[in-house]
């Protein structure tokens, strides 16, 4: 498990690494940071080049198809770009984005707390595992669309609606990975905690959470990806604000450039959250692993 995450941590920053010299708060350039910088530049070249090539093919291909077809349903790249800049310059975008992120954040927090409690209990107590296993399996199979519809029906246009829908769609995946992480937690360390009489709090803080960290992050990734899908649906059907709601408006107005722009912007924000927040958090919390590599 450890090897797996370290390998990922090595590969991932390639795409996320900032351009050299960015970041205003860089520490004084000692030999060591210079070394890591040049390593980052190389990694950036390795990781960013294929990504840039892909984007070039995508944008170029799109432009060719749009020009060839001449259809209003396939707006060309300049049209999408102008719609995009138009959206970004308006406060509506930030309001919608804020509303959506708040809903996802609250729902995800609810799912997270539930999953930590249930997942650890499932890993420790056989009865609890058997009790929740069907719920987790059902939760994993039910499409996000169904949660969205049910929550719209039950909770209407309140904040409860998106929060519960997000929690319901993210919790099963999170619970499953925390349960698996709990099973994998070293029984030798649990015995140590027992003989030295660690309190519940000390065990949770110093044994369980650090052991579960890789599982928490992989679960969080999966859970978040499901949460984004369901939040857009909920906002389409049952809310009067948010990214999903705006997407629906663009759809109703048959504004394809608008639909594309909102989608692209939403995806960009998600990428920033994934690479910027989740990954730097994971690296920060996994500092002790680096000590081994030095």
């Amino acid at each position: 498990m450890t090897h797996h995450t370290t390998a990922m941590a090595e590969v991932r920053p390639a795409t996320a690494a900032p351009p050299p010299g960015a970041g205003s708060g860089t520490p004084p350039a000692t030999a060591r940071t210079r070394r890591t910088l040049s390593r980052r530049v190389r990694a950036f070249g390795r990781g960013a080049l294929p990504v840039a090539a892909f984007l070039l093919v995508l944008v170029g291909g799109w432009q060719i198809v749009a020009v060839r077809s001449g259809s209003v349903l396939i707006p060309d790249v300049p049209a999408v770009w102008s719609a995009l800049t138009d959206i970004v310059t308006q406060p509506l975008f930030y309001d919608s984005l804020g509303a959506t992120l708040l809903r996802v954040g609250l729902g995800f927090a609810l799912a997270f707390v539930t999953a930590v409690v249930v997942g650890i209990a499932m890993g420790r107590v056989e009865f609890v595992r058997r009790f929740f296993e069907p719920a987790v399996l059902i939760g994993l199979t039910v499409p996000g669309l169904v949660w969205a519809l049910l929550c719209v029906i039950w909770f209407g246009v309140s904040l409860t609606n998106p929060v519960v829908a997000v929690a319901l769609s993210a919790a099963p995946a999170l619970t499953l990975s925390i349960y698996q992480g709990t099973r994998a937690t070293d029984s030798a360390l649990r015995e140590m905690a027992h003989v030295y009489r660690f309190s519940v709090w000390t065990s949770l803080r110093y044994l369980w959470l650090p052991s579960l960290l890789p599982a928490l992050f992989s679960g969080a990734r999966l859970g978040l990806s499901l949460a984004w899908k369901v939040i857009v649906l909920v906002e389409m059907f049952g809310m009067s604000s948010g990214v999903g709601y705006e997407l629906n408006n663009q759809f109703a107005a048959q504004n394809v450039a608008g639909v594309l722009s909102w989608t692209l912007l939403f995806a960009a924000v998600l990428a920033v959250l994934e690479y910027g927040v989740l990954q730097s958090l994971e690296r920060r919390l996994g500092r002790w692993r680096k000590a081994t590599a030095v």
Binding site: A188, L189, Y196, R197, F198, T202, Y206, P210, W288
Partner: peptide, 29 residues
Amino acid sequence: RNRLGVVFQQPRLLDWISVRRNVELALTS
């Protein structure tokens, strides 16, 4: 249980905190 000091075959230290912190946790517990 009595207050125990146990040395296992493997050190059984928590890898994510310093050596000092490992001993401190046993002391505070």
